[in-house]
Amino acid sequence: MMKSSRLFTVAAPVAVGTLFLLVWQIICRVWAIPPYLMPAPTDIGASLITNGPVLLHALRSTLLVTLIALGVSVVVGILIAFLLVQSRLIERSLMPYVIILQVTPIVAIAPLIIILVKTTLMALVICATLIAIFPIISNTLQGLRSVDPGLESFFRMHKASRLQLLLRLRIPTAIPMFMAGLRISSGLALVGAVVAEFVAGTGGNSAGLAYEILQSGFQMDIPRMFAALALITLAGLALFAATAILEQLILRRWHEHG
């Protein structure tokens, strides 16, 4: 029963995706739409093979920025959440700035960051981090605050130290919400990396997929543009799946019912 349900979870979206690609292919072929307007999935596949080495190199650059930004978001986001949870005064003083950071469009401030920061990689990482960090901060903060009052009383009754409360109660309590934040942030880090690459327009050896999309647009090589886009989508899905698997591994025992 369990096995068939899991199979269904995978098979159903794969079937929908296959059907979508099939309809797309048929429309392109039946109406003879030129590839520079709307390439068929087979054109994109062919471009992916032809431009494979270049696109994979670009994917590597984008993923490097994404993963560094995600790592920085996790470390800095957790530290900020720990700082904010220390007292209501600290939270009230700093939280508005965290929100300002979240609501300011990164596209608007990315050029400034790219001008101010000398290393391109660092500028890209900062832009992606600014987008990815908010869910980590807000979810971790919420998690640290959502301690079971009964358990907290139990710890207090046994005269637990602040460190014991943090390590044995607050941090484990925050893990499910942190994991949910991580899942959102992983996607946002990729979005941030691509947006930053668009703004920076960096080429050369460190060119990312956004640069490849821009170049393909200039050269009217639309299948290559879609191929790069497909790689970004696949990378996003892989990141989402990786964080979901990590979450499942860590939280599996919490949700099993006897």
Binding site: D148, G150, L151, S153, F154, P172
Partner: peptide
């Protein structure tokens, strides 16, 4: 020594039964 049993079990969902039972001893 004083112990308290709450209305809800107030167990740590991330720890197994043995670790939950050991908690007050660890804290003490």
């Amino acid at each position: 020594r004083l112990s308290f049993v709450f209305q809800d079990p107030t167990l740590m969902p991330w720890s197994n039964v043995a670790t939950n039972v050991r908690l007050p001893l660890d804290l003490d």
